[in-house]
Design a protein around this nucleic acid. Structure first.
Lengths: 116, 116
DNA sequence: GCGATATTCAACCAAATGGTTGACGAAAGA
DNA sequence: TCTTTCGTCAACCATTTGGTTGAATATCGC
């Protein structure tokens, strides 16, 4: 078994979890160590470690161990294929920049609520 | 429980299943009745009915009952928000059309393999 | 070497997922 | 009316998911 062959499966599944999307938005600002990624979440380190594993297997992030610290880095290219797949259904129209900015203000800015 | 508040959860989860993506690609060509959607799949009608329910709840399709037949129709707008969300990470201004065409030939054209 | 820190592993758990089957209600057609 | 077709519902099942905890591993600093 383990027939998760299509990378689209893996990427969309990874994106379907709010914790993982929030992790991605955190990494958007900067590379982070696993412990620092886990910090704002009310969840065990092991749970975050699993989430990071899923994001890594999906190709959405990469993890580079330096010493005892493992650095997590966003890999936006993996989103490209999925994004392209979606656009094929949207009939090519490249994203409306108007809607994009609006979306950023309403959704994205409120999502990563860390401890100030 | 049932705290699936964020529509992004629902949309990405719906897209994470290859059967559902294949259904979407079928509906890209034409509106279809539930039975006809189910036809090319080696899976019970009830299973397809569930998949269609998931796609409907995600807003990716709509279902209109006319007589005893329920017609399924693609709703590409729901993909827009998810697509926009993804672009915020890729920071690629509008999708690279080169990559897009290449992707279509390699991935998308082979996906919906129906009973020829 | 020893203790603290960083991260994963293993075992476990409840809940959700994707599938099955059989019964069901509603519309069409003979 | 009686039967067939369309689609969903309910109950059930195996597997996966997302979380927990405690032990294990590896590095850093003293």
């Amino acid at each position: 078994m383990a027939a998760m062959s299509d990378p689209l499966d893996t990427v969309f599944h990874a994106l379907a979890d709010p914790t993982r999307r929030r992790i991605l938005s955190m990494l958007l600002e900067d590379d982070m160590a696993v412990t620092d990624v886990a910090h704002p979440f009310e969840m065990s380190l092991a749970a975050i470690s699993k989430h990071l594993g899923i994001l890594t297997r999906a190709g959405l992030i990469s993890q580079e161990r330096r010493g005892r610290v493992k650095w997590c880095k966003l890999e936006p290219d993996a989103l490209r294929d999925a994004s392209i797949w979606m656009q094929s259904f949207g009939q090519f129209e490249a994203v409306n920049l108007d809607a994009f900015e609006k979306f950023l203000e309403t959704e994205l800015r409120t999502m990563p609520e860390e401890d100030g």
